[in-house]
């Protein structure tokens, strides 16, 4: 099976004044279609940088990045934007909804950029919002919603173009544990029912446990890959302490 995302010897080096800081050091990675992957790491480990590159939001300094077999480092800004909008859906820690437009319009927006006709995108957005249980909040502004509701709108927006990959950056980071759990259930559901690829960045082992594979990042390199069978160790707090 061809991996949907493939990184080959990727380096990301930031120039901070006169010193260079390598956030990613020769990292290689393959993610297969339909996988549920969690990327874990302490802050400063390079996981956000990795996510940005996987999400085609940033280019590597060195190395190659393939999305659906296409080398993104050779694409123009416009091609990349088009691809991002079509293949990827983003869920951010900060929800990142546009504050000036209502929930329905927020969900419709990615479809605007893909030139979906108005009625079609409205119908689709309504359907997705219903799916995440927000049918009564459609014409509310984001500021009128709770954190959990906002994150559900953000999820609905990520689902809007029926992308193949959902990239979630600390999706529960700003939510209480119950709401966080609900959000993760939604994502898992989407993954199982629709067979979508899920990539979640988190530092919370409870969240990582939803994934089938966990990638640990440290100093810009992958230190360990846990498969689904191993992650059971992490299920309780006591177990975390015992974890290798």
């Amino acid at each position: 099976m061809e991996p949907i995302i493939k990184l080959e010897n990727v380096w990301k080096i930031y120039q901070l004044g006169k010193t260079e800081l390598a956030a990613l050091r020769g990292l290689s990675l393959e993610i297969n279609p339909g996988a549920f992957v969690a990327i874990m790491g302490a802050s400063g480990s390079g996981k956000s940088t990795l996510l940005n590159i996987i999400g085609c939001l940033d280019f590597p300094t060195k190395g190659k990045v393939y999305l659906k077999g296409e080398d993104i480092t050779k694409m123009s800004e416009s091609q990349l934007a088009q691809l991002r909008g079509k293949v990827l859906g983003f869920v951010f820690q900060e929800f990142n909804l546009l504050p000036n437009i209502n929930c329905l319009e927020n969900v419709m927006l990615p479809m605007v950029f893909q030139r979906v006709p108005f009625l079609e995108r409205k119908e689709k957005a309504e359907k997705i919002l219903k799916m995440v249980g927000l049918e009564k909040r459609m014409i509310h502004q984001p500021a009128e919603l709770s954190g959990g509701e906002r994150q559900r709108v953000a999820m609905a927006r990520a689902f809007a173009n029926n992308p193949e990959v959902i990239i979630a950056d600390e999706p529960t980071g700003n939510l209480d544990s119950t709401t966080g759990k609900m959000i993760m259930e939604f994502l898992k559901d989407f993954h199982i029912k629709q067979g979508k690829t899920m990539i979640v960045v988190t530092h919370d082992p409870n969240i990582a446990n939803y994934a089938e594979e966990i990638i640990n990042i440290k100093d810009g390199q992958i230190t360990k890959n846990h498969l689904a069978a191993e992650k059971v160790l992490w299920k309780t707090k006591e177990n975390i302490l015992k974890s290798p």
Partner: peptide, 16 residues
């Protein structure tokens, strides 16, 4: 700026 970033992330081209 952040809104622009969001729009680009969800598929807005420079021209948009």
């Amino acid at each position: 700026t952040k809104e622009i970033g969001i729009m680009k992330a969800i598929g807005a081209k420079n021209s948009a």
